[in-house]
Design a protein around this nucleic acid. Structure first.
Length: 773
DNA sequence: GCGTTACATATTTTT
DNA sequence: TATGTAACGC
């Protein structure tokens, strides 16, 4: 690849960044300003123009997906061999790789496993129980959050401050947690970073080794680095001091994970001679989108103000839709998408629907499902969080590392084999006494039977069950080396007789088995690989939500505002723009948190290329009944001139709340709705797991084209002819889609979105609307 | 040891 | 809602 060719397509600041002289470079890149491109070209430039060997370059991205994309681009620019030689990955993946190589410096053995969020919570629980503390008072999630924060800030158990009694307790839990983790031969997410920093810090030789190796270090999403990551970067650049970082304070949204956007400022302080480059031209969005985004973000202080500009023209106004409730909100989203798809103005894949909390996806999913519109959902938990998947991964982890106490506890009695609490505690005590892990003791029982020194202490019945389990584990371990990964997988599944256990013949059972088969399929990718089991488990532990997106599916994407980082879509819906949701209630009393909510909204806004739909609802279902909600403060910051305001509400709040609707309790309303779903079983797709890394719930179009949406008439409270999702024809305005319908003062009011004139509110008794089948 | 039931209890974001 | 856990009966 020719260098001048490479640089040709860049604007001035971009080129300046790509060709910057060695040393430290800080690129502040607004959304859509070609940040990823700059990063990729920088790496290519270093190789092609500066003669740096790819082997000497380290590039760190925020997600595995970003890493893959960058890798693919580099392959095109440099060729496969050179692209593969580069170290490229997330902080966590890079650290895992480093720790595997330098395991001798760690307190764990080389077959260590990586503990995911779930394991961490379980481990925290155990630590709390071990210390006989009250779980109600010291909630495992909160305790773990504290531990995680400490680790991200490089605070070790013994250094944990004990200013208050509570801190002192947290410190004790942290200590116990870490002991348990090491005993389990495990490393948690945060340890990956912490250990990497520690061993580099403590071993000048290692520092020199990697410092020499990495002549050039490139970092993406720098605003979301935490202290451990920042320190790591410093440690890795002690020899060559070549650090090229790209970021944007305005897009820092991971504070709760320890990220500190002030690292951007710190960078300038720590490297006074650094070059600072601003990328302000936006190639993604219309000016309207940018103006709105800017109006929102300009309320934040402590930032380098940027004036984003676009030459894409003004574009369309932003639609602000205020729905009656969250069901109507979801219906509006689906209707709008369907309508545009039907009229050919957009493809399904052009759309994204974003929300603040995962819980919000449910109603949306139901609405999509009911309308027969396929969708793809970002969220790893959907597949990897499933019980059957976790079970089998736990078995694999035990094979890899029998000391893994958490996995052992998880599966020692799955499927039930007569090992209850008592037997388990007995086993653990025996293990403790012998200075072994429970898994090792079980294996000893299995191999030696009644001759085992542990046999007597456990009492006949329990010992038999434990020995049976231990024998299986021992045999898998013995075979692991000679078996391919899928063979091992099959052996385990057969030996434990797993299928009848999870597949009871029901639809759900079928799905569960489908997930097992999917996991098996994934294991094939590691069948020929050296240390396939290790690699497989590591990949599983480090997959991110974004990584689970099926690539090409013509379907709208549903995702949280956090997961949208780095992505872009033709048209973006942001739903739930209500106080307490966006901004989230947890952020109200902390200005820093509030600023972050604002950034989160800003990031969402700037994902849109062409159109933005901001959506909210007057009432929402919370975990009980209905609650009224009010408009998000962020909406007020967007100039009216940019907005096209649509509301499906009736009159002002006062008249609305006095209406007959109010007399219906939330419960009744929900029942009413529930019955709409009933009898519709046909259209509920079986939830079989689709393609690799695809989430399980999302029901991407693994089902053939959806059957035409059959709408059950709503159980009629009064006489109501229309309801949402119905297609209607008007003599003048033509075809449209009913968004909502209400009985008010014995009149039916219908909201219709017409293809010709857009939104109209009609009285059913007056308007001549025909229902189209 | 296992399965059922009632009850309470929580609800942000994720590498 | 939905998830986990404590208590109970087999």
């Amino acid at each position: 690849m020719d260098i001048s060719q490479l640089l040709e397509g860049l604007n001035d600041p971009q080129r300046q960044a790509v060709t910057a002289h060695s040393g430290q470079t800080l690129v502040l890149a607004g959304p859509g300003s070609g940040k990823t491109r700059v990063l990729t070209y920088r790496a290519a430039y270093l190789v092609l123009a500066e003669g740096v060997r790819p082997y000497h370059i380290l590039a760190v991205t925020f997600t595995n997906k970003a890493a893959r994309e960058m890798g693919a681009r580099l392959e095109k620019l440099l060729g496969e061999d050179d692209a593969k030689a580069l170290w490229l990955g997330t902080f966590h993946a890079v650290c895992a790789r480093l720790l595997r190589r330098e395991v001798e410096y760690l307190p764990v053995k080389d077959n260590f496993v990586i503990f995911d969020a779930d394991d961490q919570d379980n481990l925290t629980k155990r630590a709390i129980r071990d210390l006989r503390l009250d779980e109600k008072l010291y909630r495992p999630t909160a305790m773990h959050a504290a531990i995680s924060t400490a680790k991200n800030n490089l605070i070790l158990p013994k250094e944990y401050p004990s200013r208050t009694y509570r801190d002192e307790v947290v410190g004790r839990i942290y200590t116990r947690y870490q002991d348990l983790l090491v005993e389990s031969n495990g490393v948690d997410f945060d340890d990956l970073l912490l250990y990497a920093v520690q061993i580099l810090q403590d071993n000048p030789r290692l520092q020199e080794k990697y410092g020499t190796r990495f002549e050039q270090v490139l970092v993406d999403e720098f605003q979301d680095t935490n202290l451990a990551q920042y320190r790591l970067l410093r440690l890795l650049t002690t020899v060559h001091h070549n650090l090229f970082v790209v970021g944007d304070e305005d897009q820092s949204i991971y504070r709760w994970r320890g990220a500190d956007y002030r690292n951007v400022l710190r960078f300038e302080e720590d490297y006074p001679r650094c070059q600072k480059i601003l990328l302000e031209q936006n190639y993604r969005s219309t000016q309207t989108v940018l103006d709105a985004a800017r109006a929102v973000i300009d309320h934040n202080t402590n930032r380098t103000p940027k004036r984003l500009f676009s030459d894409r023209g003004l574009g369309e106004r932003i639609t602000l839709y205020e729905a009656v409730d969250d069901h109507a909100e979801a219906a509006y989203v689906v209707d709008t998408i369907q309508q545009q798809v039907a009229s050919g103005t957009a493809r399904r894949a052009d759309f994204a629907v974003m929300y603040r909390t995962n819980a919000q996806s449910r109603l949306l999913e139901e609405a999509f499902l009911q309308a027969g519109v396929p969708y793809r959902l970002v969220g790893a938990q959907r597949f990897y969080g499933r019980r059957e998947v976790k079970d089998l991964i736990a078995y694999l982890r035990l094979v890899q590392n029998p000391s893994d106490e958490i996995s052992l506890e998880r599966v020692i009695n799955v499927p039930p084999r007569g090992i209850g609490d008592k037997a388990l505690v007995g086993l653990q005590l025996a293990a403790q006494g012998a200075g072994l892990s429970a898994g090792e003791v079980a294996m000893d029982l299995g191999r030696k039977g009644p001759d085992s020194t542990f046999w007597k202490g456990l009492g006949g019945r329990a010992a038999v069950s434990l020995a049976d389990f231990g024998l299986k584990l021992a045999s898998w371990r013995a075979q692991a080396a000679s078996f391919s990964l899928p063979e091992l997988f099959d052996k385990i599944v057969t030996d434990i007789n797993y299928q009848p256990y999870i597949d009871d013949g029901s639809d759900e059972g079928n799905d569960r088995w489908g997930n097992v088969e999917e996991l098996r399929r994934l294991s094939f990718e590691y069948s020929g690989v050296e240390n396939g089991l290790t690699a497989f488990l590591e990949t599983l532990a480090l997959v991110s939500d974004q990584d689970t997106l099926p690539e090409q599916a013509d379907a709208p994407t549903l995702l949280t505002l956090h997961a949208d980082k780095g992505l872009e879509f033709g048209q973006v819906f942001i739903v739930g723009l209500d106080e307490n949701l966006m901004p989230h209630s947890r952020s109200l009393d902390d200005p820093e948190e509030m600023a972050e909510e604002r950034r989160l909204f800003y990031v969402g806004l700037t994902r849109a290329r062409n159109r933005l739909f901001l959506v909210r609802a007057d009432q929402r279902t919370t975990y009980g009944g209905y609650e009224s909600s009010i408009s998000s403060r962020f909406l007020r910051d967007i100039p009216e001139a940019l907005l096209n305001h649509i509301s499906s509400r009736y009159g002002r709040k006062s008249s609305f709340s006095g209406s007959g609707r109010e007399s219906r309790t939330g419960r009744e309303a929900r029942k009413d709705r529930a019955s709409r779903w009933d009898g519709d079983d046909q259209s509920t797709p079986s939830r079989r797991q689709p393609a690799a890394y695809a989430p399980s719930r999302p029901v991407t179009p693994n089902r053939p084209t959806p059957a035409p949406t059959t709408i059950q008439p709503r159980p009629v409270p009064v006489v109501q002819k229309y309801h949402s999702n119905l297609r209607v024809r008007h003599p003048v305005w033509g075809e449209g889609l009913v968004i909502d319908s209400r009985i008010l003062d014995n009149e039916e009011m219908v909201d219709v979105l017409f293809e010709s004139v857009g939104f109209k509110r009609l009285l059913a008794s007056l308007a001549k609307l025909d229902i189209i089948n």
